[in-house]
Design a protein around this nucleic acid. Structure first.
Length: 554
RNA sequence: GGCCCCAUGGUCAAGCGGUUAAGACAUCGCCCUUUCACGGCGGUAACCCGAGUUCGAUUCUCGGUGGGGUCACCA
């Protein structure tokens, strides 16, 4: 077989050479030790937490090592393409503070190594497919999908490993004349890698390859022996081929990807070697898992788990910096520790290391995320929380947007309630929760939600509130205000101090806490709330008095 | 089924041959306290199993078990 002749038959229009491409995409001029990382989503329109998890790792690795972080759209599968998906991806990542140095942007590609859409890099891939044919490392295969499934059926029957390799790779034997005839007849074909791996021996006796993974250390696995497809019948490359070519020519130094790629790593390894490309450092991350209702652990699934979707966090109004903070704690095991020592430091000061990433799948813990949110939000000024909340409401809760926009100062005061001092309240988690937490401040949403406390007989409610109203002075400071409540409690047979009540249970109906709970209930509609005096100061005298009157039917 | 990855409390996790086996979240108790939060103190709770190497294994090796992944002209 004359490989040069075959290559020309297969790729008559390819005139560029591998050397030409090396000149077009020269090595990057970066400092010694710089990392070049990339995110390579396929434009299916669905971007999830796992993508974000990897993106943070990519971003930190590149920017902590004077490098470049770029976005490449892996759109080699036209069947999966969803209109507008690229924009969705960029917007979603941007929301969480992930931005790229080069690659695909909303207004088009930026950077010297583009185009950054794989669908536009056909000539590059074909040049190397042609090169491989010339070298006898690749060949055309005309097997139809029916023939492929027949092979598969036979393999299953004799319990052989499925796939095209060794004696099953019948197209390897085609002569030039047969190929030419097939092409003239218009038969579709793919280009397959002609693997050099041994095929007639058990896997356990196969040659082992070792690869240093940035996260997992030394990986040992049998060499590849599969004649994988590198170019589809459409002339478009498969992921495997595009990955090898692009990460070489975009000069990627570190490939961060999910562990589902581990099993195809030997094939990628063979391709890198055949093409004479330097192997990047692979960092195979573990999957995010979740614990479901039955208590068992499983991979987060697109269909069953809404929290996998990034939209979920936007809808609930999670603050991007809080999600980032949580993700960083599961991304690098010592982040939490570092954060405790540096509570006010910018996360970029943390020394991120891929080697500290976990090789085992982390359970995504919503409870912990919410806890992290509380710690993060307590540090965000009310002003910022307010504008975030307003933006969120505009998009996801238009019916409350007007309410929040009406009196910004009022809402800001509410958001800041109890947050000053050295032991600030940590009530705020996300926008949905925040609104629910503060909604009693708005008359439209104010309602009595709880019961009166059990120590308080029904007939005491009125005297308590009448007495409270009678002595109410909006200008009282907090201690004067509470002294009055203590007095009122004593008058009505309640202990002024809870301790007195506990010591002499039979002498009192209850204690001052019960009395103030009645007041709290009338003012907030809830038996639990932040400090009532502060709430009243924000509500204003008129609204406070009105609510109490309404409660006792006046 | 073949191959690969993973395995410390309920969860995330330190650990890298000798430790009272950290810490965080959750949980429970106490303190603070007019409720709730916040904060403080304390408690319950873990090295998957079996061999081997070793004076000594959570740590190293092998074999199981369990969980996950993958075996497409999808990525």
């Amino acid at each position: 077989m004359d490989n040069m002749k075959l290559a020309d038959l297969l790729f008559p229009n390819i005139t560029k050479t591998p050397e030409d491409w090396e000149k077009i995409y020269p090595e990057r001029d970066l400092p010694e030790g710089a990392y070049v990382t990339r995110l390579g989503p396929s434009p299916t329109g669905f971007i999830h937490l796992g993508n974000l998890y990897g993106a943070f790792a990519d971003e930190r690795m590149a920017h902590q090592h004077d490098g470049v972080f770029f976005l490449r759209i892996e759109d080699t599968d036209d069947k999966r393409y969803v209109e507008g998906a690229v924009e969705t991806i960029i917007t979603a990542l941007d929301y969480f503070g992930i931005s790229f140095d080069e690659g695909a942007f909303i207004d088009g590609d930026h950077g010297a190594y583009g185009p950054y859409h794989q669908s536009e890099r056909g000539e590059l891939y074909q040049t190397f497919a042609k090169k491989m044919v010339q070298n006898g490392d690749a060949y055309p295969c005309f097997l139809t999908s029916e023939e492929l499934s027949e092979i598969r059926a036979k393999q299953e029957e004799i319990k052989a490993n499925p796939g095209i390799y060794g004696k099953w790779a019948v197209s390897r034997e085609l002569t030039y004349e047969q190929i030419e005839e097939n092409i003239k007849a218009g038969k579709p074909f793919v280009i397959r890698l002609k693997s050099r791996g041994a095929t007639d021996i058990p896997a356990s006796e196969m040659k082992q390859i070792s690869i240093e993974d940035g996260i997992r250390g030394t990986l040992t696995m049998p060499e590849n022996n599969m004649d994988i497809v590198i170019l589809k019948a459409t002339g478009i490359p498969t992921y495997h081929f595009a990955h090898v070519i692009d990460d070489h020519f975009m000069r990627t130094t570190h490939v961060v990807r999910g562990e589902e790629w581990l099993s195809t790593l030997p094939a990628h390894y063979e391709l890198f070697n055949m093409l004479g490309f330097k192997l990047p450092v692979f960092c195979h991350t573990s999957h995010l898992m979740k614990i479901d209702e039955t208590g068992s652990k499983r991979k987060l699934s697109k269909r069953k788990d809404p929290e996998l979707s990034l939209d979920y966090y936007r809808q609930d109004g999670y603050f991007p910096e809080a999600v980032r903070e949580y993700l960083l704690t599961i991304l690098n095991s010592n982040y939490e520790e570092w954060r405790m020592e540096n509570p006010d430091a910018d996360y970029r000061e943390f020394d991120f290391s891929e080697s500290r990433m976990s090789g085992s799948g982390a359970l995504f813990d919503l409870v912990k995320l919410n806890d992290v949110c509380k710690d993060v939000l307590v540090k965000i000024p009310a002003e910022e929380i307010y504008s975030f909340l307003l933006n969120w409401a505009e998009k996801y809760r238009p019916e409350i947007h007007g309410l929040l926009a009406e009196d910004p100062d009022y809402v800001k005061k509410i958001l800041d309630l109890g947050r000053s001092g050295n032991k600030p309240r940590k009530d705020l988690v996300n926008c949905t929760q925040i609104f629910d937490f503060i909604k009693y401040f708005f008359d439209e949403y104010f309602e009595i939600q709880d019961e009166i406390p059990e120590h308080v007989p029904a007939e005491d409610v009125k005297p308590i509130l009448e007495g409270y109203l009678a002595s109410y002075d909006h200008s009282d400071d907090q201690s004067a205000w509470f002294d009055k409540i203590r007095g009122l409690a004593t008058e009505l047979g309640y202990a002024a101090k809870p301790k007195d009540f506990k010591k002499n249970l039979d002498q009192y109906k209850g204690h001052v806490g019960d009395v103030s709970t009645v007041i709290r209930l009338a003012v907030t509609g809830r038996s639990q709330s932040p400090d009532v005096w502060e709430i009243q100061q924000i509500l204003g005298e008129e609204r406070t008095v009105e609510r109490i009157k309404k409660f006792i039917g006046r």
